[in-house]
Amino acid sequence: MADSVDSSLSRKLKDTTAGFVGGAVQVLIGQPFDLVKVRLQTGQFRTPIEAFRKTLAAEGPLAFYKGTASPLIGVGVCVSVQFYAFHDARRFFLSRTNRDSLSLPQFYLAGAVAGVANSPIAGPVEQLRILLQTQRYDAKLYDGPTDAIRKIYSAQGLPGIFRGQTVTLLREAQAYGLWFLTFEYLMQSIQNLRGVKRHDIPAWQVAGCGALAGEVLWLGSYPLDVIKSKVQSDGFGKDAVYKGAIDAARKTFNTAGLSGFWKGLIPTLLRATPCSAGTFMSVELTMRLLG
């Protein structure tokens, strides 16, 4: 129990550092998949193959890493905040029980806390990434994340930077509640079945738990992500198509039905497997290395 509720500064720094490493790995693995997903969600292409083929033909292979600079730092910070907040919430729950581990609802709540804590960073970072990913090479509005921030802030102020923040918060809470719950449940199941300690679970099994957690994350939160992408890729002012998240959801349903909320799911799930596996494996191995 003493190790489970270690609240020292060094422990928190290790949680944060491991999360940053995991976030950087996540971006480098997942950025090409993410670009395809966003372009499908926002209606630029009909299928993942069409999105891949036409993007490659028109913009070249480096197009799949458009907008990587801001998420490489931003997602690293996001994931470090997620893991810090998750472990802090876990320690909070453990300090108020006589258990050695959280219950499943507590794991979900701790993950949701991580998502909420992360949402003020994730909202602006994801909007910048989406705006850069969805602009076409022949109709370029922004020269990069710095230029995008300057132009958005100049025209719209802080509300423009934090556009879509409510739906982002809801997406983050649900997604990361499910993500951490699934991963911790699977890791505990391996420990119980094999009678081993957590640090003895081999890296490939950690990666497998992370891969499955990534699938559950998106299956449980994807409609919210579609709405968020529509709001954050929308025009500003007179060019806006949607009045907000509720209007985006209503118009999506009216034009595409329920299937409209699942557009781009396949490349997202394909991306989630290696990204989530890489994130959890790199976080777990970094934490073992740091002690």
Rank of each mutant, 00 (worst) to 15 (best):
P120E: 03
A114L: 04
L131D: 05
V38Y: 13
F20P: 00
G76V: 00
T42G: 13
K37G: 10
V77D: 02
W204C: 08
C209N: 05
G111K: 12
Q156L: 11
G260W: 07
P145M: 04
R53M: 12
Q135D: 08
V27N: 06
S80M: 03
E184V: 11
A277E: 00
R129G: 12
K54E: 15
T16Y: 11
L28P: 05
F83D: 02
P274Y: 04
Q174E: 13
R198N: 03
H87E: 13
S229D: 12
V196R: 08
T279D: 00
T146Y: 14
I201C: 01
G278E: 01
L62N: 11
T286K: 08
K54S: 13
A175P: 00
R96M: 09
L56I: 03
F107E: 15
L102M: 05
I266F: 10
A51T: 05
P223T: 06
E126I: 03
G157D: 01
I73V: 11
G115L: 04
L193H: 15
V21E: 00
L170S: 07
F236L: 06
R96P: 07
K140E: 11
T268C: 01
K230F: 05
C275F: 01
L270V: 04
S80Q: 02
D6C: 07
F107R: 15
Q165W: 14
I130E: 11
A2G: 14
V21R: 01
S189G: 08
F45V: 05
G260P: 08
P267G: 00
F33R: 00
F33Y: 00
D34Y: 12
F45H: 05
I227H: 02
N118K: 14
A89N: 06
G23W: 01
V38L: 15
L158N: 02
R90T: 12
P159G: 02
G30W: 00
D138L: 08
Y137C: 14
K230V: 06
L131V: 07
Y84K: 03
L285R: 13
L170W: 10
I161G: 02
R91F: 11
F20C: 03
L265H: 01
Y242E: 08
I73E: 09
S119K: 05
G235P: 01
V116Q: 05
I121H: 06
L131M: 06
P202H: 06
A240K: 13
E215K: 02
I161A: 03
H199N: 09
L289Q: 13
P124I: 04
L270T: 03
K151Q: 13
R194M: 09
F162K: 04
G76C: 05
D34H: 14
L28A: 11
T279L: 04
A139W: 12
G67Y: 03
S7G: 14
L212I: 07
E126L: 06
T255S: 15
T55N: 10
I266K: 12
G257N: 07
T42K: 15
H199W: 12
